[in-house]
Design a protein around this nucleic acid. Structure first.
Lengths: 241, 241
DNA sequence: CGTAAAATTGAGCTGTCTCAATCAATGTGG
DNA sequence: CCACATTGATTGAGACAGCTCAATTTTACG
């Protein structure tokens, strides 16, 4: 039985490559089913620490990285030191679909928590895509999701108030983790610092703090112990629009 | 000689399908060269008037539209009546690359000028992509460009001042038209109303007006007769950051 | 030539920022 | 396991970029 490459059974609880995980992206591209359909991938799993830039702008990558574990963010850094978060990357998700088709990164990828990633070999992944139209469709649907999310963010930053943006972000993250099957009782893991929220919503940490305090005082949310609880989803949704 | 389908020689000066045009997208995907490589397309060219919604949110399209002539914008409309412009679509450009892989539109496409579009049949376009990896690559590069531009817009809206956003937009449009070979002497066609600039930059028409007045007073630009002249590109670039 | 759409200008207002100080939490070396 | 060091959260006071409202002028067009 030498068919499936020897894969370590530990260290990647979210990744479908190891046991029955919850890796959203790999599910998405349909690689969970018939195991032999898996494209060959580079097996090395790389650990990263929290609050580091794990891939740099302009870096050239031969692999297409998928976050196995932990949270990260795609960011653009401005010359004045400020930073815009373009997207949050949750455990199991593809770092950015552009890397399936391009090798040079034009954004930075910053880790939020510590965690790990694995890289697909781009050529082999592309070959797998060529082989299977279904896989192709699923990659493209991952792309569509990314792109739709970018459009929503543009709209939020351009036309929505601070309260709307923050509420929208919380609801959005909740929904995404829900779809990944990652609701833990009545709360979700929430490793974001107020800085992350600020950089994602185009606000200041000081102001984010005030908005969150308002939500907390109104009994809409509770953030503690790196977990977010949405106490009144209806009311929070109402803040969004 | 029945090989090339009978294509009317008029009404689509930018589109490579008719004569030696400048259709950026079709150039991009490599369909200008060996004429027989053209995927079959629906030949009907559709005219549209200025200031209309030409494709509606949630509309299902069998075709993948390319703007032959005129300017349009992808927009999202909020319930309070405000609007965010996600991207400007210039003559010759693909409306949105998402439509190559999906049939349902989740944004509106509003015309700015009058103009026309043609639609590729999605199935046939996909077949052409499957046939030619090069065509595939070029479609994906069109996608990358779109996506990169979205990232830049997010950054502008999240972290840049009004002056920076407006200056950035002007420079960006100038560069895009330059790449399309559409600089006319020392100016470019500029059909945008101040409303469009406001909706693209997340500002108010009143404030856009003040920023433009400042640029004009400082001798950086001149907008008149639906044309934009950049009188001091260096200085204008410097506004962007 | 009249009418509608777009641009311009002014006055005042407010959402969000800056600066600054304090407090809480988290992590680290000894 | 403590004491310190660092990072993050909170709060207040004041400032200002960009908004609203409203009136007027200019431009475009049938």
């Amino acid at each position: 039985m030498t068919l499936p490459p020897p894969v370590p059974k530990s260290g990647c609880p979210n990744c479908i490559l190891v046991g029955r995980g919850l890796c959203g992206f790999l599910f998405d591209i349909g690689l969970d089913q018939p195991f032999p359909d898996l494209p060959p991938i580079s097996q090395k799993q790389v650990e990263f620490a929290a609050r580091r830039t794990i891939f740099h702008r302009n870096q050239v990558l031969d692999g297409v990285p998928v976050i196995c574990d932990g949270w990260a963010a795609a960011t653009i850094k401005l010359s004045d030191g400020s930073r815009q978060i373009l997207s949050f990357i949750l455990p199991g998700e593809l770092v950015t679909s552009r890397l399936v088709f391009e090798s040079q990164l034009d954004v930075s990828i910053d880790s939020i928590t510590n965690g790990s990633y694995r890289s697909f070999d781009r050529k082999q992944l592309r070959a797998a895509i060529d082989r299977s139209p279904q896989t192709f469709d699923r990659i493209m649907s991952a792309y569509s999701t990314e792109s739709r999310r970018a459009d929503q963010l543009i709209t939020a930053l351009g036309r929505r108030s601070a309260v709307e943006r923050v509420a929208g972000l919380l609801v959005d993250l909740w929904d995404r983790l829900d779809r990944l099957g990652k609701i833990e009782g009545d709360s979700i893991e929430f490793p974001l610092r107020q800085t992350h929220i600020a950089d994602a919503t185009g606000l200041t940490t000081v102001y984010v703090n005030k908005v969150l305090a308002e939500f907390r005082n109104d009994g809409l949310i509770d953030i503690s112990d790196r977990h977010l609880q949405i106490l009144d989803m209806t009311q929070l949704q109402r803040q969004v629009n």
